[in-house]
């Protein structure tokens, strides 16, 4: 049996991005966002991107640099408050921003990766979040129907991978990463440490290697 070679250089990973793609990213205020892959995306020059993730972090961290360099056409996120450039572009109509409650966003991504047609959530009922959405009532409780989200590429940050792509995360850097690994056609993981297959205890694997297509080693070219 041949094992596909998943470990690639940043230069090779860079070639995978295209104009107009939808990209999911891990991270919360930059913790758990793959900084090397964000740099690769910048270097590639891809434009008119749709980015889906929790927040736009700060101008110099997370996906912030992609906003500052105007590579993003549309954002689907829960928070933009720590990156003033996102707010400026939004108010100037230079970028489309869909603000989604964080718990709803992660469930939409989970649905996208789990073969589900959507999820019913009480979050957002009675607010502007419900505008244009189907509402259902069960047992006297109103729910919004929230549809699944998927992406062309998911960019993940993990602490450690083995060669078949089993991933282990570090502390609060896990956040969206295990969920986006299910919801994209191509999954690229940037890791701090690469070990031989079999060296990670199967009990501690969070993201199964079968979900990961490419691995890049942080700090290497």
């Amino acid at each position: 049996m041949s094992i596909p070679q998943k470990v690639v250089s940043f230069k090779e990973a860079e070639q995978l991005f295209r104009d107009g793609m939808t990209i999911m990213f891990g991270g919360f205020m930059g913790a758990g966002t793959p900084a090397g892959l964000v740099r690769a995306l910048l270097a590639n020059g891809a434009n008119n991107l749709t980015m889906i993730g929790n927040d736009t972090a700060f101008p110099e961290s997370g996906v912030g640099p992609l906003i500052v360099n105007k590579r993003v056409r549309k954002l689907i996120v829960s928070h933009i408050g720590t990156n003033p450039e996102t707010g400026r572009q939004m108010l100037a109509n230079e970028i489309e921003v869909q603000l989604v409650p964080q718990g709803t966003l992660i469930e939409q991504i989970r649905c996208g990766g789990a073969g589900l047609g959507g999820v019913l959530t009480p979050t957002g009922v009675g607010t502007i979040v419900e505008e244009g959405k189907t509402k259902l009532t069960f047992d006297g409780v109103e729910y919004l129907v929230e549809r699944p989200l998927r992406a062309d590429i998911a960019i993940i940050k993990a602490k450690k991978a083995d060669r078949i792509g089993n991933l282990v995360y570090e502390r609060a850097a896990r956040n969206f990463n295990p969920l986006i690994a299910l919801a994209a056609d191509l999954v690229i993981a940037e890791v701090d440490e690469l070990v031989e297959t079999g060296e990670i205890d199967p009990d501690v694997v969070i993201t199964p290697g079968a979900l990961v297509d490419k691995i890049v080693l942080a700090g290497r070219n």
Partner: peptide, 25 residues
């Protein structure tokens, strides 16, 4: 018991983050 704490239209639009889920659940 209605709450507004996530945006001032045209001025401050940081996003709701986890606030809507927290007050719901």
């Amino acid at each position: 018991g209605n709450l507004a704490n996530w945006m001032i239209p045209g001025k401050m639009v940081p996003g709701m983050g986890g606030a809507m889920d927290l007050v719901t659940g």
